[in-house]
Each structure stands twice: as structure tokens, then as C-alpha cells.
């Protein structure tokens, strides 16, 4: 893949990763390493620790997620992340918008019939 293609793919994944993190936290709280590990299970998203941690910091600054240190059953305390009230409502709006985007893109890419 050329540099241009990589750059384009990276551009359109940027917004998606934010929604992916909110979606993961909507299912329940998680600590940083766990978020990285679970999202890494989706190779299509091409998410690494270098992508996740800056986003967690940005989402926290935006008030969409909260974090709290908790004792861990194994090892030292861990910092857990969870959706804030604002984050939950933002996630709802983004998920709805995402449905519209995927419907439109499936149609444009000729995948509508496969749904």
C-alpha cells in the first residue's frame, strides 16, 4: 500500500476509533490496557496503544468519559474508564449517525443487498 493510501485510511479511521472507544465503554468500564487489548482484536480498526491513550485523554478532557483508580484483584491499582452522562448521550447520537453513514456507504459500495 502506498503512503497516500495509508494516509487516507488513517484519516477515515480517526473518527471511527473515537466511536469505537465510546462503544466499548458503553458496554461497561474498562482499564487502559484492557481497552487497547480488546480493540486490537478488531484488526480492521488498526488501533494501537499510541492511538488509544491520546484519545482517552482527549475524551476525558471533553467530559465524555471519567476515570477512577481501583484496587485490582491482581497486582497494583488500575485506572478504570467509564462513560460520563454526557458521554452516554453523545454515544447515542453518534451511534445513530453511524447507522446513517453505514447505510449510505453500503448503498454506495453496492453492499446494500448483502445486508
Amino acid at each position: 500500500m502506498g503512503n497516500d493510501t495509508d494516509s487516507r485510511l488513517s484519516q477515515f479511521r480517526k473518527g471511527v476509533v473515537e466511536l469505537a472507544i465510546l462503544g466499548l465503554l458503553h458496554a461497561g468500564e474498562a482499564y487502559g490496557g484492557e481497552i487497547v487489548e480488546r480493540l486490537a482484536g478488531y484488526p480492521g480498526l488498526a488501533i494501537s496503544a499510541g492511538t488509544v491513550y491520546p484519545l482517552l485523554s482527549r475524551l476525558k478532557k471533553a467530559g465524555l468519559i471519567d476515570s477512577v483508580w481501583r484496587e485490582s484483584p491482581v497486582g497494583p491499582p488500575r485506572k478504570y474508564y467509564r462513560l460520563s452522562t454526557l458521554g452516554a448521550s453523545e454515544f447515542g447520537a453518534m451511534a445513530t449517525a453511524w447507522d446513517g453513514v453505514t447505510d449510505a456507504m453500503d448503498d454506495l459500495l453496492g453492499k446494500g443487498a448483502a445486508r
Binding site: 477512577v68 483508580w69 481501583r70 484496587e71 491499582p77
Partner: peptide, 9 residues
């Protein structure tokens, strides 16, 4: 930070 959060909890 850990002390603050664990104390709050």
C-alpha cells in the same frame, strides 16, 4: 491520584 481515588471509594 491513586490515594485520592481509593480514599474517595
Amino acid at each position: 491520584e491513586v490515594r485520592r481515588d481509593l480514599d474517595n471509594t
